[in-house]
Each structure stands twice: as structure tokens, then as C-alpha cells.
Amino acid sequence: MPRSLIHVLAWPLLGVFLIALPHVLSFSQQEILAYLVFNVLLVASYRLLTLTGEWSLGHVVIMGVGAYGSALYTKHFGVPVPVSMLLGAGTAALIAMVLSYPLFRMKGFYFLIGSFAAGEIIRLLWKRYREPFGGPKGLKRIDPMPDIDIGIWSFDFFEPVSYYYFALAVVAVCLWIMWRIERSPVGLTFHAVHWQDNLAESAGVNVRAYRTLAFVIASGFAGLSGALMAHYIGTINPTSFDVEQMVFVLTWAIVGGTATFYGPILGCVVLTILNEIVLREMGFEQMRPMIYGLVMILSVLFLPKGLESIVQRLVGRKPAPGALAEPTRMEDRA
């Protein structure tokens, strides 16, 4: 088959596959699939943040800001659900904006630890204040998506399949926007800020402003992912967004590789399948964290460029211009 034909057919085929997929899965697998869609958005937004070279440990808490925000807007102000999600995402971006003032005085390792501290403080505030955050037990009975009737189709969003389609559409649009951002002059400047920050600065680029911009945009998408999740499961608490969840996101990104757009998404999908489908159904329930940990260690040791490097070898493409050997140059700046 000629190469161009594959390119033309790839997207429609993927679309058909994703639409057909839930119908061959069991109910619990459908639920996992819905989660997978939220997580793909989360990890893709995480990569947008890492484009400028900073690795945050607060990203899951930012996701939680979106979740708490959206849930509280519906609860206290009666905002209808899809609108509240956008407001939640906006809140996450706003909080990220505020946090960027102290955090972007730091770089590299200090940023990593600083973002962790900032995230933990937010999380502990949710835990401490029963009003309005619900304390350690969190928020319950979050408003679900209202049913929608469009002509012959009616969507009952208590059904995982319906919610999956909804989330899939939202996430597809978000991924497209992020892709466009990365390919725009702004996105190229993000790369420049990462790999040549002194040069970029001397060329008149406001490095800190671009770091902040990447952080704010990424946080907005993470917040949206959190909001999507909150209105699906209907209950959130501070533990849903603790450092253990952050470790999973970090692992997806590292195992997948962050040099390409699809790397972290690939890592998320592969590890979720490994985790949920293979390990859970094979009955390794207790051993799952252990195997997960082992996969993490083995992949940094033996596959430092991530799963994406395997794909690139198979497809026979050269890595993207920004993609160098090591995941980050933290040692230069730490």
C-alpha cells in the first residue's frame, strides 16, 4: 500500500476504532476506558508543561483544582454542568497563574520540589476546610451531566459509553488545540526556552513569561480533565489527587517518552492496559504496585528514550528536532 494512502486512512480508521471499541468491552472495562480518556488529556497537558523543560510534581493537584472548582460551581451557584467544567478549567489556569509567581523563581530540581510543596499546600487546604471543600471525605453527589436528546440520539450520561463518547469528543478537540499550540511560533519558542534558554533570552524572548504561559495553558487542560472526571464519578476527595497519582502521571510520561506529542499518550495507554486489563484480570491485585515499580525502573534503565523511540524505529522516522538523548538537562541547571 502506498504510504500516502495510510496517511489518509489513518485518522478515520482510528476514529472508527475508538467509536466501536466500547461495544466489545465489558462494563467495568468501559469504565476504565472512560478513565483512560481523562488520563490521556492529563498526560498530554503534562507534556505541554515539560516542553519548557520544567517537571512539575503539582500537576495532579492542579487537575484537582479543576475538579473541585467545577463541582463547587454547580453545587453553590447552580452553574449547568458543561459550563462549570470550563469554569473549573479556568480556575485551574488562574491558580497556576498565581503559583507561577513564586514557582518560576526556581528551575530544575528546585521547581520540582517547589511545585510539590505548592500542590501539597492546596491539597491540605481541601483536607482542612470542611466548608466548602468537604474536608477529608471530600465532595459527594456531584451533579452529573444532564441527559441530551439530539433527534434520534439520546445520551444518558450515567452510561459509561455515553460519557466516554462525550469525553472522547472533548479530549480530541483539546489534543488538537495542544497540537496546534506546539506547532505554532509560541510552541517553537517553548522548545527554544527548554534547549537554549540563554540564547533565547539574548534573542529577546522573555523566558519566564513563556514558562508561565506553558504552565498556565497546561494547567487549564489538566483542570478540564479533572472536571470531566469529577462529574463522571460523582465524588472526589483530597486523596484522589495525592502524590501517588502524580507518580502515575510521571511514569506514563517517562515510560512513553516526552520527545514526541504521542509519547506520553502511548505510555498512558500501554501502562493502563498493562495495569488494569492484564494485571487486574490475572489476579495480581496485591502485586500490581510492585510490577508497576519494576516497569518504571526497567524502562529508565533500558529504554531511556521511552516507548516512542521504538515507534520511531518501526516507522523509520528521525526524532523531532528538539528530541535529544536524555529526558531533561536538569544537571545543567540544578
Binding site: 507518580v247 511514569t251 504496585p289 515499580g293 518504571m296 525502573i297 529508565v300 534503565l301 529526558p327 531533561t328
Partner: peptide, 20 residues
Amino acid sequence: DNPLGGLVASIGFLMILQAA
């Protein structure tokens, strides 16, 4: 030569110890 890799590997080791 990969400090972030070392950090990630130690997180993996943490999960192994906890699970064990």
C-alpha cells in the same frame, strides 16, 4: 548521568518496597 532518571527509579523502588 541522568538525575531525573535516578529520581524516577527510586520512586519505582519505593513502590516495590511498599508492595513487598
